[in-house]
Amino acid sequence: MNIFVIATTLQAGGGITIYKQFLSHLPEHIGQNKYWIFVNPVLPQVVIEGVIYISFPLQSKIKRTLFEDKLLKAEITKLRVKPDVVVSLQNKGYKCFNACKQLVYFHQSLPLYPGSYNPFKRSERYLFNYKHIFPRLVKRTWVKNTQFVVQTPVVKKRFASYFDIPLENVHVCFPDIEKIDPSQGEIHDWGDECFHFLYVSACAKYQNGITLIKAVELLYKKNPDLASKIRIHITSNPHRAPVMYKQIQKHGVADNFIFEDSIKHDLLMNYYKSISALLFPSSIETVGLPMLEAAAFGTPEIVADVDYAHYVVDGYEGVTYKNVEDYGAWAEAIENACNNKRIIIPLVQIRESEWFTFFKLTQG
């Protein structure tokens, strides 16, 4: 069979991770099929027998729009190849291939959860678009009986309900997760007597950094001595997270928050071993990888009381769930993490790769 794979608009984030995992598993599933992979040139193009890459340098939004109805059609005409199956790794479908089977990997969970975003605020405009514009656009591209792949049962349920898709047309393929050896790495020396926490976040509105700010502010009223010793390390910087930075200054807790920017993998693992707790108040995630990483070290976690979190770290005794709007509850949980040290059994990752489910769906 000729299988077309579309990955032309993937440029950053989880989409690239999906693409790389797809390539890593492709050799063992390719069989006698021939894969034609249409890619953004920034993506790796690994040499695999039976795979041909067609590069599309699509940078502007206008060109991306044109790709759907012009550039792809023109390229297919030149190739003189008709697909038997079309696989989209980027949420959208393709009307121009309505006569063949289509498989869409949907990996944008923001539309599936409640959230209010202001299109007139620069920091929220892209969230507004993903919440309200994006789902309308992608739904129009899906052909009848398209098969969908999502990452968790939680997303499957929300996706099917939101888009009114039959559950039998939605399949779960949990992404590969790095197996972490908790014996590796070392305890990080902070060089002080403070209580250190980690907030792995790009500081988007739905990741609820304001919850941590107000929780610390409340702690100053309740236990100022303890509050003055709290240090929350953020995996972003003031330039990329100006709203978070301004709120920290506004609430007078600048001494408590440390912008680390991106943290190298080895140092991040050391941080997990050394912090008082991971703080993860995000209301929207597909998986929430930091929760799994911290749990692998037996690190305490304070996380949003949301369905995805309950699924991902189900059975881990070190997790505490809190409503992100209950700032007092977060303040109390942070205080408890400082005062109550205990040994927690690490969450062992024994999950096998589920990519076989994905490739099984590509069969005609």
Results as ranks from 00 to 15, higher is better:
1 M>I: 03
7 A>Q: 08
9 T>N: 15
10 L>M: 12
10 L>R: 07
10 L>P: 00
15 G>W: 04
18 I>L: 15
21 Q>F: 07
24 S>F: 06
29 H>D: 09
35 Y>A: 11
36 W>F: 15
43 L>N: 06
47 V>K: 15
49 E>G: 11
57 P>K: 05
57 P>W: 01
58 L>N: 08
58 L>Y: 12
59 Q>A: 11
66 L>F: 13
69 D>A: 11
86 V>C: 04
87 V>W: 02
98 N>Y: 14
102 Q>L: 12
103 L>K: 03
107 H>D: 06
107 H>I: 13
108 Q>K: 01
108 Q>M: 12
108 Q>E: 14
116 S>V: 15
117 Y>I: 12
122 R>C: 00
123 S>G: 00
127 L>E: 13
131 K>H: 11
134 F>S: 03
139 K>Y: 08
144 K>N: 12
144 K>P: 00
146 T>Y: 05
149 V>F: 07
153 P>N: 10
155 V>I: 15
156 K>V: 04
161 S>V: 04
164 D>I: 07
164 D>K: 13
164 D>W: 00
166 P>H: 06
167 L>E: 14
170 V>K: 04
173 C>W: 00
179 K>H: 12
187 I>S: 03
189 D>Q: 11
193 E>C: 03
197 F>D: 06
202 A>C: 00
204 A>H: 08
211 T>N: 11
218 L>C: 02
221 K>N: 11
225 D>I: 14
229 K>E: 05
231 R>K: 15
235 T>Y: 03
238 P>K: 13
243 V>W: 08
251 H>W: 14
255 D>G: 01
255 D>N: 14
260 E>W: 08
261 D>W: 06
262 S>D: 09
265 H>N: 10
266 D>V: 12
269 M>E: 02
269 M>S: 05
274 S>F: 04
275 I>R: 09
276 S>C: 14
281 P>C: 10
288 G>L: 13
290 P>N: 07
291 M>G: 10
295 A>K: 09
302 I>V: 15
319 V>M: 02
321 Y>D: 05
323 N>R: 09
326 D>E: 12
328 G>T: 13
330 W>C: 13
334 I>K: 03
340 N>I: 13
346 P>G: 11
346 P>E: 08
346 P>R: 09
349 Q>W: 06
354 E>Q: 15
362 T>F: 07
